[in-house]
Amino acid sequence: MSIEVTAVRKTFGDFVAVDGVTFAVRDGSLTALLGPSGSGKSTLLRLIAGLEAPDAGRVVIGGADRTDTPARNRDVGFVFQHYAPFKHMTVRDNVGFGLRIRKVPRDRIRARVAELLELVHLEGYADRYPSQLSGGQRQRMALARALAVEPRVLLLDEPFGALDATVRKELRAWLRRLHDEVHVTTIFVTHDQEEAMEVAEQIVVMNEGRIEQIGTPRDVYERPASEFVMGFVGPVTRVGDAAVRPHDLDVRTTPAAGAVEAMIERVVHLGFEVRLELVTGDGLPISAQITRQAAEELELRNGQIVYVRPNRLLRAVA
């Protein structure tokens, strides 16, 4: 189902959490709400779910205005940041909860739960309690629980936020594949731009309760609409008046038209890439990132004079 949010506003006392936000996601899409903490992205997600009521604005799900529909009637699957497992229930009872309160016959619940546990790779864990699961397993259980009632949209609040780095990476790829299988319209909240880039088809960048930009991962990275987006979705360095990504700089040892002269202060090896910390004659720092191969060919070392030229500018206004 498509989701349309129109001019939604939410305040908590004096604090404006969401300040007139409008955006739409199409049926079956996978969208990331990306922003720093306090940018209003989690509140926006809760507004869509009906866990918060907006002060103004409308929330339309699948063409129907749901602004005044209570959360329990919105058919929205919600996965909480800390998964909110029902601690006194087994994994089976957690996943089957939504079906049980809908009075679905027992044998059908059992079959559906088994099917979902297979989907989230928790087949052998039906009789465990949440306290006996790892963080990643709890998260997948929460996902299965949300999917059990066949929600029309799936909302995930910082789905990978509480996991360690390796599990995070695995789960990202897995969520992507899951979305391809299940095809439910999905919005997830994240403060990690890499995560948003990797998983989402569309990114909504938020800052201070407002939307800064909506676009594909490539759009927001290559054509940031504002200074904020530019800095938030990736590294930025300045060459003269131009803002540029460090890997969009040509580095050479001979002067060239439009190139800026700089001295290498430090060569940092990052594996496949090498980061150069440069300083211009005016004392301004520049950060450049080139491949290891290019660095070796140029035989770069500390103290050397090089010439850098942007080969792709960011459109953002400085």
Partner: peptide, 24 residues
Amino acid sequence: EQEEAATTLGASPFTTFRRITLPA
């Protein structure tokens, strides 16, 4: 969070209280 989770799964306030809050 657990109460909210139950709500999004379709539980009424009374069901949420009886099946989630009270056991907790």
